[in-house]
Simulated scan of single mutants.
Amino acid sequence: MPIDATLPYDETNIFARILRGELPSKTVYEDDYALAFHDINPQAPLHILVIPKGPYVSWDDFSERADDAEIAGFIRAVGLVARELGLVAPGYRLLANVGLDSHQEIPHLHVHIFAGKKLGPMLVR
């Protein structure tokens, strides 16, 4: 169910549970600020999720409350994952949904990295 980005952080969300080691994930990268792993329901041949380790509901929440080291670390992690997976030359798409209208389903900031084929237009018209 989509969430309202203004809601408080829910410690029982699936990404919080992955971060605590309660649920498995197929990790591709991890550091002090971020965790990147394969999506369990991929929407492209390659579909990676990158999440900050802190309890942030959305991009807006993260940009308002995270400290500079967390912000830099998370953004660097997204770029590093794309480079390490060889996605820069062929291209890839980043997507971060925020709130109800965007259909955000998990109340933890996450960036989708889509790649592995030509992805077509951003939105269906």
Rank of each mutant, 00 (worst) to 15 (best):
A72I: 12
A69D: 14
Y92I: 07
V78W: 01
T6C: 02
A82R: 08
D67K: 14
L19E: 03
D10G: 04
I106A: 07
I3K: 00
V28G: 02
K53E: 05
L23H: 07
H38T: 05
S102N: 07
L95P: 00
K118I: 10
H110A: 04
L35Y: 05
P8L: 10
F37M: 12
P45F: 11
I113Y: 00
G120H: 06
L87R: 09
V111D: 00
G99V: 02
D4S: 09
K118R: 13
Y92C: 10
Y29N: 04
A115Y: 10
T6K: 13
A89K: 15
V28K: 02
K26A: 14
R65K: 15
I14P: 00
F37Y: 13
A77F: 04
L94A: 07
R17V: 03
K53I: 00
D31T: 07
A66D: 03
I51D: 01
D61Y: 02
F74I: 01
I71A: 06
L23S: 10
R125F: 12
A16T: 04
S63W: 03
Q104K: 10
A96T: 14
G79A: 12
N97A: 10
R83G: 06
G91V: 08
V111W: 03
P55E: 12
W59M: 15
P42D: 12
Y29L: 07
P55T: 05
G99K: 01
R17P: 01
L94I: 10
A82Y: 04
I113W: 03
A69L: 14
R76L: 08
L80Y: 06
F15C: 01
N13K: 05
A69K: 14
G116H: 08
Q43K: 15
I75K: 02
K118F: 00
L109F: 04
K53C: 06
Y56M: 03
D32M: 00
D39W: 04
F114D: 01
Y33M: 09
G21V: 12
H38G: 05
K26Q: 15
W59I: 12
H47G: 11
G54I: 11
A72M: 11
M1F: 08
V57S: 03
D68R: 11
Q104W: 04
A34W: 02
L109C: 01
G54F: 06
L80S: 11
H103L: 09
F15T: 02
I40E: 09
A34L: 01
E105K: 15
N41R: 14
Y33S: 11
E105H: 13
S102Y: 01
G120R: 06
